[in-house]
């Protein structure tokens, strides 16, 4: 009767996520200047990556699913890049 136990990867991912959460909150209080934002978003991305790869099982999925999952992010990148370009280059 072991079939109800969660796979080790899930438990590991969960613990890692909680650890990263603690880390990001702690780092937010370090005075890093503009670095704070970068750190927060980097850790956020790692956490999101863990959720996607392990909870959403992307690591077991084929190319097509990966493309579909990536398409949203790719277009999000376009929106953020070209959208903020105007505001960053105004004189």
């Amino acid at each position: 009767m072991t079939e109800w136990r969660p796979p080790i990867a899930l438990v590991g991912a969960w613990l890692a996520l909680l650890a990263l959460l603690a880390l990001t909150v702690a780092l937010a209080y370090l005075p890093l200047g503009a670095g704070n934002g970068v750190v927060a978003l980097t850790i956020g991305t790692i956490k999101a990556g863990l959720v996607a790869a392990i909870f959403m099982e992307l690591r077991h999925r084929g190319g097509l699913t990966l493309i579909f999952a990536g398409a949203g992010l790719f277009w999000l990148g376009i929106l953020l890049w070209l959208g903020s370009m105007d505001f960053l280059t105004r004189t």
Partner: peptide
């Protein structure tokens, strides 16, 4: 087609660089 939307805004006061790219 997703990279061109700013061409509706060439006279709106968006930055000249953005206009150039769009």
């Amino acid at each position: 087609g997703f990279l061109v939307w700013g061409h509706h805004m060439f006279v709106s006061g968006q930055s000249l660089v953005a206009s150039l790219v769009f």
